[in-house]
């Protein structure tokens, strides 16, 4: 337990050092930023709700009328380098900094995942899982999914893994034998089949053909104005406002329906995991009292 924590801390330190090194090497992420901005044209107000065409508008301009000082400098730096082929990259790097970050996150993610499935100690596995989730959040950031990156950290690393740790505390016993080695030949066969399938899937995914404009910066989310005379509001793609607008329009039904699912989960988890009473018939009475107390 202690050794794995030490290893974890060391790993995090290494990642942090590598991060700083990578950033200082190339002038940092901020320097890479202007490339993703389209030629400083005025927002082309398409009345169509949804997302504007790519590369036609600055990424964030109008935020809810109230002037946000932070938005001003972003608008002030025009970026003519969009035609630079090096800028046409999925994570919009025009230098190795983003690539280095990607590989760090990739290694962290894979390493953490392998840690999860090989550790005998369950706490160690959970720590590997947390590492994986942080790396995944980093990848989300690179894909312009900033809101989801934060949610990933809050919900997965923050809430779900804590739940796992609580249950490990309740169980409090190490695994007798971590590997199910019964039927080894079958498992080797399954492993070969799985490796082959993963290879096929991987080669398929590696050669995925993206639409022609997919390497440009993502378009802003266009929210139609309340009054016809106003300009439409543009939100950063993948920002809280952008995702929220989509969530309450296109995804209204799933958003509401997920509440049913959460209710089932809450009620069900309590119904199953609640402590046993002397007899289930008696427990039925005790339950009514417990329900009143809560």
């Amino acid at each position: 337990m202690r050794t794995s924590l030490v290893r974890l801390v060391t790993g995090l330190a290494v990642v942090a050092i590598a991060l700083v090194a990578a950033l200082s090497l190339t002038g940092g992420v901020a320097a890479a930023q202007p490339a993703e901005r389209a030629p400083g044209a005025a927002p082309a107000p398409t009345a169509q709700p949804g997302t504007a065409p790519r590369g036609t508008a600055p990424r964030i301009q109008i935020v809810d009328g109230a002037a946000k000082p932070a938005a001003a400098p972003a608008a002030g730096t025009p970026a003519p380098r969009i035609e630079d082929p090096r800028a046409r990259d999925v994570i919009n790097s025009n230098g190795p900094a983003m690539a280095v970050l990607f590989w760090i996150f990739a290694l962290g993610m894979i390493g953490g995942a392998i840690f999860v499935i090989t550790r005998r100690n369950m706490i160690a596995a959970v720590m590997g899982m947390v590492g994986t989730f942080f790396a995944v959040a980093g990848l989300y950031m690179m894909l312009y999914a900033s809101f989801l990156a934060v949610i990933q950290m809050l919900v997965y690393a923050g809430a779900i893994m804590v739940l796992f740790v609580f249950v490990i505390m309740i169980l409090n016993r190490p695994e007798d034998e971590p590997w199910g080695l019964v039927g080894l030949p079958g498992k080797i066969l399954a492993g070969i089949a799985l490796a082959y399938l993963t290879f096929r899937l991987g080669s398929l995914l590696a050669s995925v053909k993206a639409p022609a404009d997919a390497l440009l910066a993502p378009p802003p989310v266009v929210v139609p104005p309340g009054a016809p005379t106003d300009a439409p509001t543009l939100y950063d793609w993948g920002s809280t406002a952008g995702v929220g607008w989509n969530l309450f329009n296109e995804y209204l039904f799933p958003f509401e329906a997920v509440s049913i699912l959460l209710l089932v989960a809450v009620v069900g988890a309590i119904a199953i995991a609640r402590p046993l009473k002397a007899d289930d018939d008696d427990a039925a009475e005790g339950d009514a009292a417990a329900g009143e107390a809560s």
Partner: peptide, 17 residues
């Protein structure tokens, strides 16, 4: 001996699914 009223609630919610 498994008189649990949750049965009915969960049953109907899962029917909603």
């Amino acid at each position: 001996g498994w008189v649990h009223g949750e049965y009915y609630g969960v049953l109907l919610l899962s029917a909603a699914g």
